[in-house]
Each structure stands twice: as C-alpha cells, then as structure tokens.
Design a binder for these strands. Structure first.
Lengths: 154, 154
DNA sequence: TCGATATTGACAACATATTGTCAATATGGC
DNA sequence: GCCATATTGACAATATGTTGTCAATATCGA
C-alpha cells in the first residue's frame, strides 16, 4: 500500500484516506441502528433532517448533503411515498418543488434525534470534544480542497 | 439537526459524524480518478492492495478492509474475470482459496500507487502531517468503539 | 472420534449512490 | 424581449455495499 510513497506527510494523508473510508461503514451502520426503530435509515434520516432545517428543493438538499442530486431524489420520492414528506409548490420555481415534513415525518425525525442525542453524548464524552472538533475541521478542509481540485480541470 | 442535543461533546460528535459521512464521497471519487487511468476503481484498488500485501482469502480481505465479506467477494470475482488476480489453492483450507495478483494486476496496482503517491504527497504537505495523524488516530479509535458497541448486544 | 459451533463461499434481494442523458424551466447579458 | 447558459427533475444504467440464507468445511472441546 505504500511502495512509491515518499514524504511522511504524503504517507499520513494516505493513511488518513484509508481510515476515513473504513470509518464510513460503521458510522452508517450506527446511523441505521438509530433510525431503524422509527422505520428509517441513515440516508432517509439525512434527507428528513435537511428538509426539516428549511423547506428546500431536492437539488438544494443534495448540495447541502454533498451528494448527487439523483440519489437524493430517489430517497425523497421514497419518503413522499411513505408519507413522511410532501412536495409543496415553490413560488419562485415552477419545477423545483419544496420538500416539507408531514406530521409523520416530524414524529419520526424527532424520535431519531432523541436516540441520536443520547448516543452522541455518550460517545462524545468518551472521545473528547476538542479532538472531535479538530478532526471535523480538518475533514471539512479536505472536503473543500477535494472539491476545488475536482471542479478544476486538474 | 440538533434539537435534543445536550452536551457540547455530544454536539461535537454529531458534527463529526456528519462531516465524516460527507467526506466519504469526495474521497472515493478522488480514488476513482486515481485508479481510472489503469481501468480500475477505488473498490477494486483496495482489494488489489489487500491481496498484494499478502495472499489472502476473500474473507481475510473483507476483515482487513472492514467490509462485508460478500461485497469483497463480488469485487474479487470481477478482478479475476478481468485477469488481475487468480485464486490459488490454499493448503490450509479447502474452500477458502487465496487471492494472488497476476502480472496484469501488479502492473495496474503499481501504476495507481505511483499516481496516489504524488497526489498524497501534495495534499499531505498542504494539510499537515501532524493533524492528519491525529485525525487518523481518532478515527481508528471511533471504528474500534463502534465495533465493540455493535458486536455487543447494546 | 464425535458433535457443537464458527467460518467460508455461493446465491439472492435490496439500499445507497454515481454517472450520463434528456427535456423543461430559470437566469442573466445583450 | 431574446438567446446562450445553467439548473432541475425524470429516467436509465451501473457500481458499491449490506443483509440474509444455505451448504460445505474447519475448529475445538469433551
């Protein structure tokens, strides 16, 4: 995995990348476990949370979540079919309707939030706020750097 | 996203989780870009790298990569069909054959490693070795904590 | 050796997400 | 107002990954 690796910093970034990708699995599974008692999943929870933050179009939510528009569209249509959100007409855009949580959607989201709060408090206390915030800041920085590089004709 | 959130540390962990999940996408895409010139993807690269580290069964590689056995099996069968690996008989286990890179597999992996080294060196220098190592250590710790919690009847 | 238990690959179903294409609709410069 | 360009949702194809089940095979204690 580290044959032509040269600099220590490059090695550190390679290690970081592998570890970050390994983390995604357990994190998604933990989210699924939190969402499951309310009949939801990590992905559906994320979209519900985005729509609850403010009524927004599918494209808006995709940008907010850093996902492809079409993937979010798929989840949103499932949520609508299950009666957790509705599409409300958008006064400023004929096509891009706004996602709004129904009462059922609000109930589900609230339940998940309760569970997540207990879970996050427990793990946050165990892991330490300072380290978590430093790591979050670094990850946000990396997201930004990768975004710039991929949007440019690199 | 943070309604019933109580402790600062819990909030920090919630933020960390969201950011980590957001990072996975760009990171996978960057890996795909590195692997693409050799006709590979992030996922196939990971399996190639595992098999190159030492001949191992699909189940071994899945454990090493932190993925479900069946997903790795699927990738490995694709790699075999494309002639990048072969299954070698395992003297110690009749069913669990060992993945071994073919010459084509070694060539592809080497090419990707070259590209990745340049990429990681560049970003590693930009982001700082110390912060990257601290974040990696924290992520590894979280993977371990989540693993324990999910394996237990939590 | 025997038998309970775990591991392994095969197979299938499904969830998540990207990429690409298209037509409808906005947007902004002229 | 018009036109080039961008955004948006619809549709389809594909990649990645989990979960569940099953039979074959290992492993290990009695």
């Amino acid at each position: 995995m580290k044959d032509p690796e040269r600099t220590p910093a490059g090695d550190a970034f390679a290690e970081f990348s592998i570890t970050a990708l390994r983390l995604a699995g357990p994190l998604t599974q933990a989210g699924d476990a939190l969402a499951k008692p309310s009949g939801q999943t990590s992905a559906r929870w994320q979209v519900l949370a985005a729509a609850n933050h403010a009524p927004m179009s599918v494209a808006d939510a995709a940008r907010a979540l850093g996902l492809a528009r079409q993937g979010v569209q798929r989840i949103a249509d499932l949520l609508e079919a299950d009666g957790l959100i509705t599409y409300r007409d958008n006064p400023t855009h004929q096509r891009a309707k706004l996602m709004v949580l129904t009462a059922a959607g609000e109930t589900a989201l609230h339940e998940i939030k309760e569970r997540q709060a207990a879970w996050a408090d427990r793990l946050g206390a165990e892991l330490g706020e300072r380290r978590l915030r430093q790591a979050s800041a670094l990850m946000a920085e990396i997201i930004e750097v990768l975004r710039e590089r991929s949007s440019a004709a690199d």
